[in-house]
């Protein structure tokens, strides 16, 4: 058992015996080096501690084919958008999206947009939309500084992380997700009444920055839980334990869930509305993926 009490072990001893240390080194040398730096243990000699970590959102902002969000002129690239990866962006696969969006899409689409607005159409900073956004940010900053509670931002941030780690990781259940929703709502209340942010808004203030982000993460975390609860199937990085084949593989339900869930914001405190974007496959057939 490891010190954390969480890890299972991945042992390379047999592979090293079979293929030789040189081969393993050539394949995984840099990963083994990273592992040794983090844990202080040599994975060529001791089994590695592993754990199925939370895999982020598996999604992002809704964009059109030109990578523009629902706000005209605001583009989202790479992992920040939802577009290419579907239910699985494990490993470094999301790098592809960063590269594809950056090299092949945005250089063409952004120019097209800029050409339509012309150089004179700058958005004036006294426009009502700008004023409203600026005022909102100011109000939130003042609110965060005024709470003067007892708990550092980082502690609340970590608490949110633990909830997501425990109940909204690769493997989830309806029961766990419902509990997570309650816990996140309680944490949200705690955050907005008891967070402690020192300093002011006129200087470099990392705790204030972090508090603004954590406020967002709380919203996003709850949305991820809602989405995971809604999707009554297993798919990619979303393994609902209720939905598995007799031998423990992910069980999809293509008849009911072959869609992208685009959740639409309805305003503070209101539940998001689900828009289903149906996935149509013209050249490939949906099949069961086997990792065996």
């Amino acid at each position: 058992m490891s010190k954390t009490g969480l890890a299972v072990y991945l042992d390379f001893a047999d592979a090293i015996k079979r293929d030789g240390r040189k081969t393993i080194e050539a394949k995984y040398g840099n990963l083994f080096e990273m592992y040794e730096k983090i844990t202080g243990e040599n994975p060529y000699e001791l089994p590695m501690m592993i754990y199925p970590a939370v895999h982020y959102t598996m999604g992002g902002l809704w964009v059109d084919y030109n990578l523009m969000t629902t706000i005209p002129g605001l583009y989202a690239l790479g992992e920040a958008n939802f577009s290419d990866h579907g239910a699985n962006r494990l490993g470094a696969s999301a790098l592809m999206q960063g590269l594809a969006d950056g090299y092949f899409v945005i250089p063409y689409t952004i120019g097209d947009y800029l050409a339509t607005i012309g150089p004179a159409d700058k958005i004036p900073v006294d426009s009502p939309a700008f004023k409203e956004a600026e005022q909102k940010v100011h109000a939130q900053v003042e609110q965060l500084l005024a709470i003067k509670g007892t708990r550092p931002v980082d502690e609340l941030h970590k608490e949110l992380g633990h909830i997501m780690w425990e109940y909204c990781g690769m493997s989830r259940t309806a029961e766990g997700l419902k509990l997570a929703k309650q816990k996140i709502q309680a944490l949200k209340k705690e955050f907005w009444t008891n967070v402690k942010v020192l300093g002011d808004s006129e200087e470099m203030n990392q705790a204030l920055e972090q508090a603004s982000r954590v406020a967002d993460f709380i919203e996003l975390g709850e949305l991820m839980v809602d989405d995971a609860l809604n999707r009554e199937e297993s798919c990619g990085g979303h393994f609902r334990e209720e939905h598995q084949t007799p031998d423990g593989e992910a069980l999809r339900d293509d008849a009911n869930f072959a869609y992208v869930a685009a959740w639409e914001y309805q305003g503070e405190g209101k539940p998001e509305v689900l828009n289903k974007e149906v996935l149509e496959f013209e050249n490939v057939k949906l099949t069961q993926r086997s990792y065996k």
Partner: peptide, 24 residues
């Protein structure tokens, strides 16, 4: 087992609780 930055998180946590400016 802490990283150097996690050690600074611990320092900043205690500074914040005491009402002292955390290290940027």
């Amino acid at each position: 087992d802490m990283s150097f930055l996690e050690m600074f998180d611990v320092l900043n946590d205690s500074l914040t609780r005491k009402g002292e400016d955390p290290v940027t």
